[in-house]
Amino acid sequence: MTQTAVTPPSERAVRKATPGGARAPRRSGRRRIALPYLLLLPALLLELLVHLVPMLMGITMSFKELTQFYIRNWSEAPWSALDNYTVAIDFDAPVGQALLKSFFTTCLFTVLSVGLCWFLGTAAAIFLQENFRGRGFLRTLFLVPYALPVYAAVITWAFMFQRDNGLVNHVLHDQLGIGDSPAFWLIGDNSFWALLVVSVWKGWPFAFLTVMAGLQNIPRDMYEAAALDGAGVWKQIRHITLPSLRSVNQVLVLVLFLWTFNDFNTPFVLFGKAAPEAADLISLHIYQSSFQTWNFGTGSAMSVLLLLFLLVVTGVYLLLTTRGRKTSDV
């Protein structure tokens, strides 16, 4: 292993000193310019085919009256201007109302889930920073929820949340005596909390993994210097560990936010195709309303609105966190 973490500052100078390599100094011109593009070509084509072109198509579809009659030849579907959007955001009508409710549910769910995932991940990483017996074992164990395939993990939780033969009601009702009769967890209002528990269980190890990686970049002498100055462990965590994690957290929270807000798999496997209203996350909501009514135009319009929302939030977030970092680091 000949690898070091330091990038040489003079990288450009080095490259300029040996133009084109020694073997073919004449070949430099066009081929050298073309080479990076050739290397990128496969990635670019795949991204175009699977992400960018479909996205542009999706945006186009959102302006069309795309019902089941036009699925086979969607390009012939009549244009409908902004009709799909007016339907989606008419909050007095049932469609818009349901969308707005699903949006607020998703917002609350995301805030709680991301907050808890971040907290558990950070706390666990900090507590496992120092060596003690069993540390390696716990670190491996904590990654198990992340490693399990989503459907296997979520289906197990679905079993645990069963009303009559699940573990949750056995503990809460039979053993602790809470409530008069066993509660329903996968239908009704409780389903929100069931979904949250599953989402946190599945999501926090990613925060743990990322923060753990971030902790390795904090130089040890900082702790030694603080210890010499008489700072205790709690103070060191507050004044060295947490501030040093700022840039890691900036990316981590954003990624968690986007994944949680777009999460489809967890509610889909937990509830089956029909999510209860209390846990009707936006991705599943759009999926259901598109495939139930076969009205893909409106479904696309909702997806575009969702994308716009995520873009705005991401933009504002990056602007705020980056600016905040610059001023507070002084």
């Binding site: 450009r12 990076p36 960018l52 996205m55 999706g58 986007l258 999926y287 479904g299 696309s300 873009l311």
Partner: peptide, 28 residues
């Protein structure tokens, strides 16, 4: 390598991560 469009490429590729899967399921 340094080349034209490098930043556009990295930003575009990374931002596909935030696309809701549902948006390109049907077009795909």
């Amino acid at each position: 390598y340094t080349f034209r469009g490098k930043r556009v490429f990295t930003v575009t590729v990374l931002s596909t991560q935030m696309f809701p899967g549902i948006l390109f399921l049907l077009p795909l």
